[in-house]
């Protein structure tokens, strides 16, 4: 049974979002990291990139797989967790403590379409 943290919103493609004012902090769920196995690399976007909801902004890589990351919201990338470039295992060890990007949202109403922890629990199993 994977850990689904309360107080976050989730996408069907297994990203989590924590909302900090106009900024969406985005990472991947415990379920997603467990499915990937040992993550060997996190492909990150550049600060300043603009994203539409559903755009891929990077990827997680393991030895035998690669999984695209999709932005749950539209907006501009305002921060990238560069530490993951050297320590991709952090995503395995602490998926909710390892944010990947921060996006300044252009349309916060998009958050309404995301899943609650309870609804996400139905998918992540």
């Amino acid at each position: 049974m994977s850990n689904i943290k309360e107080g976050l919103r989730y996408s069907e493609s297994h990203e989590w979002v924590w909302v900090d004012g106009k900024v969406a902090v985005i990472g991947v769920s415990d379920f997603a990291q467990a499915e990937m196995g040992d993550i060997t690399y996190v492909d990150l976007p550049d600060e300043g990139d603009s994203l539409a909801a559903g755009d891929d902004f990077g990827a997680l890589e393991s030895v035998k797989a690669s999984s695209e990351l999709y932005s749950p919201v539209s907006g501009t990338v305002v921060a990238v967790n560069e530490a993951l470039a050297d320590q991709p295992e952090k995503v395995n060890e602490d998926p909710y403590g390892s944010w990947i990007i921060k996006v300044e949202m252009s349309d916060p109403s998009e958050l309404d379409a995301l899943l609650s922890p309870q609804a996400y629990a139905e998918i992540a199993k």
């Binding site: 060997t40 690399y41 990827a59 890589e61 393991s62 030895v63 035998k64 797989a65 690669s66």
Partner: peptide, 8 residues
Amino acid sequence: LQAREQHI
């Protein structure tokens, strides 16, 4: 570094 490659 096979995640760059076509089979994945």
